[in-house]
Amino acid sequence: MDLTLHASFLPQDDPDAALAFYRDLLGFEVRGDVGKGSMRWITVGPVGQPGTSVVLHPPGIDPDVTEDERRTIFAMMAKGTYAGIVLATADLDAVFDRLQARADVVQEPIKQPWGVRDCAFRDPAGNLVRIQERN
């Protein structure tokens, strides 16, 4: 099979804060921005990787999601346990130094027992953004 990762989805509850984090802080390019107000779907992705995107979407809007489920989604987002993404970089320390003063640090760079060296932040919606060092 010839498969690639095309898009991943993360909820966002403040489109402008999401743009400030993913575009302005992480340096992703905006590939799409549709909708109005809080009902915006924003597609971003790493520069130079046009085939890989992250869609930042309003949480719990699927018509099949019940009100109880919607409340659970928002509660989990507030705790930072609902969604996440793993990114990679060649220079973890430089990325951490750039982000630490402007993002919610969850974990400083550390070598994990399973061999990966990584750090972690939360985006404005509470999503876990883990950044691994490429070998």
Rank of each mutant, 00 (worst) to 15 (best):
P11D: 05
P11H: 02
Q12K: 09
P15L: 09
D16G: 02
D16R: 11
A17D: 08
A17R: 12
A17L: 09
A18W: 03
L19Y: 00
A20R: 12
F21Y: 10
Y22M: 03
R23E: 09
R23S: 03
R23K: 07
D24L: 01
D24S: 01
G27L: 08
G27C: 05
G27F: 07
F28S: 07
F28R: 08
F28H: 02
E29Y: 00
E29Q: 11
E29W: 02
E29D: 14
V30A: 06
V30S: 05
G32K: 12
G32Y: 00
D33P: 03
D33F: 06
V34A: 14
V34Q: 11
V34M: 12
G35Y: 11
K36C: 10
S38D: 13
R40Y: 03
R40C: 05
W41N: 09
I42K: 07
V44M: 05
V44C: 07
V44W: 00
G45D: 11
P46V: 14
P46S: 13
P46R: 14
Q49S: 13
Q49I: 10
G51F: 06
G51Q: 12
T52D: 09
S53R: 11
S53D: 08
V55P: 00
V55E: 14
L56T: 06
H57K: 11
P58Q: 04
D62A: 09
P63I: 01
V65Y: 10
V65M: 09
T66G: 07
E67V: 08
D68E: 15
D68M: 13
E69F: 10
E69A: 13
E69C: 10
R70K: 14
R70Q: 11
R70L: 10
R70W: 14
R70G: 11
R71F: 11
R71G: 11
T72H: 13
F74R: 15
F74Q: 15
F74I: 14
M77R: 06
K79D: 13
K79H: 13
G80H: 08
T81G: 05
T81R: 01
Y82I: 12
Y82M: 09
Y82L: 13
Y82W: 15
A83Y: 07
A83G: 07
A83T: 08
G84V: 03
G84Q: 02
G84N: 05
G84R: 01
I85H: 02
I85Y: 04
V86E: 04
V86G: 05
V86C: 04
L87F: 07
L87R: 07
A90W: 13
L92H: 05
L92I: 11
L92K: 08
L92Q: 08
L92W: 04
D93W: 00
A94D: 07
A101F: 01
R102Y: 13
A103R: 04
A103M: 07
A103K: 05
D104A: 06
V106K: 01
Q107E: 15
Q107A: 14
E108I: 02
E108R: 01
P109N: 04
P109D: 00
K111E: 15
K111D: 15
P113A: 06
W114S: 03
G115N: 04
G115C: 05
V116T: 09
V116G: 01
R117I: 12
R117S: 13
D118G: 10
A120Q: 00
F121Y: 00
D123Q: 02
D123R: 01
D123H: 01
